[in-house]
Computed example of a mutant assay.
Amino acid sequence: MSGDLDQVGPRLRAARRARGLTLEDMAARAGMSTSTLSRLESGKRQASLELLVPLTRQLGIRIDDLLQPEVRDPRVRRPVVRRDGLTIAPLAPEGAAIHTYKITYPPVDTLPELRVHDGYEWLYVLTGRLRLRLGEQDLVLTRGEAAEFDTHVPHAMSAAGRHPAQVLSIFNGEGVRMHTHLAQP
């Protein structure tokens, strides 16, 4: 929490400047000396509710806006999973609302067994050619093509031809379990 408090002054200064107010203007509006505001913004004066409440009212922000933690590291660092010849790279953090993966399908002689489960699936072919068996349809999607389908329809996928196919896939929770065999919280 002390790291959050260290950012109150700079965030206060940024909010004031974003509204085009000088130190003098803001201090006068909040009923404090320019020196006090300057010291508060520079971190030389400790923030207190007595000082922050009039400032946040004048700026039209909440005290919480000054205390929000820094943005977390946005990089996804989850291990790649290899199973049944597939390479499955998670592209979203654990527990994300949207389950996104880059899946590499190897070339195979026989299409995997058709599966059915609740939900929808969205996919986009990044490289190679993807064979998508969807009910009675037997389709080949190439780089740049996308598909969306109801997963109640029996379906299966593999690379088409002699080269792997890389696909960006988005699943609901049940789709993650069926296609990646990864447990979801």
Score class of each variant (00 low, 15 high):
Leu114Val: 08
Arg78Val: 00
Gln7Trp: 01
Gln137Phe: 10
Val176Ile: 03
Pro154Val: 13
Ala146Arg: 11
Leu126Lys: 00
Asp84Cys: 00
Pro154Ile: 12
Pro112Gln: 01
Leu130Gln: 01
Arg129Met: 00
Val125Ser: 00
Ala27Cys: 12
Val176Gln: 08
Val125Tyr: 07
Met32Ser: 07
Arg75Val: 11
Arg13Thr: 13
Gly95Cys: 02
Ser158Phe: 07
Arg83Trp: 03
Asn172Lys: 06
Thr127Ala: 03
Val140Ile: 15
Pro106Asp: 02
Leu51Thr: 10
Arg162Glu: 14
Ala30Cys: 08
Arg78Lys: 14
Gly85Gln: 09
Val53Ile: 12
Leu114Trp: 05
Val116Ser: 14
Leu12Ala: 00
Pro54Cys: 01
Ala159Phe: 03
Asp118Asn: 05
Gly175Lys: 04
Ala28Arg: 03
Ala47Ile: 08
Thr56Ala: 06
Ala18Arg: 07
Ser169Gly: 15
Leu126Phe: 11
Ile88Ala: 06
Arg77Thr: 15
Ser48Arg: 11
Ala18Tyr: 00
Val108Gln: 09
Thr151Lys: 09
His163Tyr: 04
Val108Ile: 14
Ala160Ser: 03
Thr127Phe: 00
Asp64Leu: 13
Lys102Ser: 13
Asp118Gln: 07
Arg162Asp: 15
Gly119Val: 03
Pro93Ile: 09
Ala14Gln: 14
Val71Lys: 04
Gln58Ser: 11
Arg131His: 07
Leu111Gly: 06
Gly3Val: 15
Ala27Thr: 12
Gly20Pro: 08
Thr36Arg: 12
Gln7Val: 05
Tyr124His: 15
Arg115Glu: 08
Arg131Met: 03
Ser35Gln: 11
Arg17Ile: 02
Tyr120Cys: 11
Arg72Thr: 06
Ala97Met: 09
Arg83Asn: 06
Asp84Phe: 08
Arg72Ala: 02
Ser2Asp: 13
Arg13Tyr: 04
His117Gln: 04
Arg129Val: 08
Arg45Met: 09
Glu50Asn: 09
Thr56Leu: 10
Glu145Phe: 08
Ala96Thr: 12
Val8Asp: 07
Met1Leu: 15
Arg62Met: 11
Leu37Ile: 10
Ala160His: 02
Gln68Tyr: 10
Ala27Met: 05
Thr104Lys: 01
Met178His: 09
Arg39Leu: 12
Val140Cys: 10
Met1Gln: 14
Gln68Leu: 11
Leu141Gly: 08
Arg29Cys: 04
Leu40Ile: 03
Arg62His: 15
Ser42Thr: 14
His117Ile: 02
Val71Glu: 07
Val76His: 14
Val153Asp: 10
Arg45Gln: 02
Arg29Tyr: 00
Leu66Arg: 05
Leu139Phe: 03
Pro79Asn: 11
Pro69Gly: 14
Ser33Tyr: 13
Asp25Leu: 00
Met26Gln: 07
Lys102Arg: 14
Leu182Ala: 15
Arg131Phe: 07
Glu145His: 01
Ser38Gln: 14
Thr36Val: 15
Gly135Met: 00
His181Pro: 04
Gly161Cys: 15
Glu113Asn: 04
Leu123Gln: 04
Gln7Asn: 13
Ile103Val: 12
